[in-house]
């Protein structure tokens, strides 16, 4: 499966494919950040307005960066969750359902227990994380115990989740208007709302899990070569189930931030997360085949996706362009990260 990754001793000047793939996402992000102001500059130049490239850019402003960070925060949590799964060479497509269920359960618990963070209702936050863990755990069980490929097991569980969220809400929207909870969005430290710092904390926790815990190392072991991992005595099934459970917890984090951002929990809260998060992970450079990449890649990927979405609006492109662009981007990213010599056939 894997090709030789050993660095060649001769010709250190030549950029290897591995190096290129490793740094391409960051390069793309930098190019995008420089590209959108260029479009703005061109437009103003054409109209004969004064515009100093980069300095006068509306895109390159703190206010706009905060906007990007706000829209990226929930997506980052969801994408980190699925990163662990993709590292193992599996996939999780259940996020839309899981996010919806977590959001709705959170809102119901939160309002049921007092409706403000200053009461027992704060327990709804760990409560939602537990709901996410349980959903992920069931997802992992279905995948591992029934031996169903993960993309299908999780897709089906996602449908069940969306259906369950619909059952809970009956199609209604639940408003979460507590000021203390909404301070996730309304209170800003250094121009960025609190939810961005929460997302950053989530990222650091994920990084710790990935690099400093046995579980994190095991994700890479399973993704790098499942048979080898099995032969060396690793309980692969257990790692998988724990991976899906962990992913569920991060989906729940994403749900909390999504509710904090909009102030509403509903069946549609999870809509759109599947494609955005998969795109982000893949574009960030985590290989679909497993074993390569990690949460920092996902941060870059989420930023790329959100910069594209935001930048297109800033330079005045209609928003229907976004879906198609992301679609082509994900194909390009998978193609770039795939080593043709090592893949025999693809289903």
């Amino acid at each position: 499966m894997s090709s030789s990754t050993a660095a060649l001793p001769d010709g250190p000047r030549r950029i290897s494919r591995e190096t290129l793939v490793k740094w391409a996402p960051l390069l793309v992000l930098v190019v995008l950040v420089l590209l959108f102001p260029l479009f703005e500059w061109l437009e103003d130049f054409r109209d004969g307005k004064d515009h100093i490239y980069l300095l006068d850019s509306r895109f390159l402003s703190i206010r706009n960066f905060a906007r990007i960070a706000i829209s990226a925060s929930p997506a980052l949590m969801v994408a980190i969750g699925v990163t662990f799964i993709i590292l193992m060479g599996s996939i999780d497509l259940s996020m839309e359902g899981t996010v919806s269920v977590c959001a709705v359960m959170f809102a119901l618990m939160f309002i049921g227990m007092g409706g403000t963070l200053a009461s027992w209702a704060f327990l709804a936050i760990p409560g939602a994380l537990v709901v996410g863990a349980v959903m992920g755990f069931i997802n992992g069980l279905v995948h591992v115990k029934l031996k169903i490929p993960s993309f299908m097991a999780s897709l089906a569980m996602g449908f069940v989740g969306t259906g369950f969220a619909l059952l809970l809400t009956g199609g209604d929207r639940i408003r979460v208007e507590d000021e203390a909870f909404r301070s996730l969005l309304t209170v800003r430290w250094f121009n960025f709302p609190v939810m961005c710092y929460v997302a950053l904390l989530g990222l650091l926790v994920a990084w710790f899990i990935q690099s400093r815990t046995t579980l994190g190392r095991n994700f890479y072991a399973v993704g790098g070569g499942e048979e080898l991992a099995k032969a060396s005595g690793l309980n692969v099934n257990r790692v998988r189930i724990m991976g899906f459970t962990l992913a569920g917890v991060f989906f729940a984090m994403g749900a909390l931030l999504a509710v904090g951002r909009i102030g509403i929990a509903e069946t549609a809260t999870g809509n759109g997360f599947m494609f955005v998060s998969i795109t982000a992970v893949v574009v960030g450079g985590t290989a679909l085949w497993g074993g390569i990449g990690g949460v920092w890649n996902t941060l870059i990927g989420v930023l790329i996706v959100n910069v594209i979405n935001n930048g297109m609006v800033v330079i005045g492109l209609p928003n229907w362009v976004q879906d198609g662009t992301l679609g082509l981007l994900v194909i390009a990213a998978v193609v770039l990260s795939t080593d043709r010599r090592s893949v025999s056939f693809v289903k």
Binding site: F275, V282, W320, Q322, D323, V330, V334, R340, K347
Partner: peptide, 24 residues
């Protein structure tokens, strides 16, 4: 088949290209 992208990703992605077209 030619670019080695698993079908669940390629079709999902092409679906979004189609969605773009439909919205447009």
């Amino acid at each position: 088949t030619r670019l080695f992208v698993p079908s669940f990703v390629s079709t999902l992605a092409m679906g979004f290209v189609a969605l773009s077209m439909a919205k447009w």
